[in-house]
């Protein structure tokens, strides 16, 4: 049964996570906000958020904070994702499925290139 996930594994995860933090310059975090109201959920926001977390994990980007928000009244454009980089304008992306989410991580969060085609608002 040693292959089973157990609470004891958390100690290893904790140590690894803390090591990563020490390596990094702890500046201001990039913030990603996923719309998770009823409309967002129905449109697939869970998969969107899962894809973002997985992509950040794969690229070892733990200085990005991913949070959720409720309905902002643009239900037909869900799943909505905001990317807020320190010192930059907030960019809102519309109809972000898992695939788009991964591209946003690669292009916007890592390479600092806003994907204008999918952005509906910048402020």
């Amino acid at each position: 049964m040693s292959h089973l996930k157990s609470l004891d594994e958390l100690e290893k995860i904790r140590q690894r996570a803390l090591q990563e933090t020490r390596v990094r310059q702890s500046g201001q975090k990039t913030q990603v906000v996923v719309g998770m109201g009823t409309c967002g959920i129905a449109a697939g926001a869970r998969e969107t958020m899962a894809a973002i977390l997985a992509e950040l994990g794969k690229r070892n980007l733990t200085e990005v904070m991913v949070t959720q928000t409720g309905c902002i009244g643009l239900c037909d454009r869900e799943p909505l994702v905001d990317v807020i980089k320190p010192g930059q304008a907030k960019v809102t992306y519309a109809r972000v499925d898992a695939e788009k989410a991964r591209m946003i991580v690669a292009q916007h969060i890592i390479n600092d290139q806003v994907i204008g085609e999918w952005a509906i608002a910048t402020r």
């Binding site: 958390l10 995860i13 997985a54 994990g57 794969k58 733990t62 904070m65 991913v66």
Partner: peptide, 18 residues
């Protein structure tokens, strides 16, 4: 889970995966 993770949060990709 939090008690064992200390300062590490549920938003850490490794934790979410776990």
């Amino acid at each position: 889970v939090s008690a064992r993770l200390g300062a590490v949060g549920f938003d850490h990709p490794l934790v979410a995966d776990w």
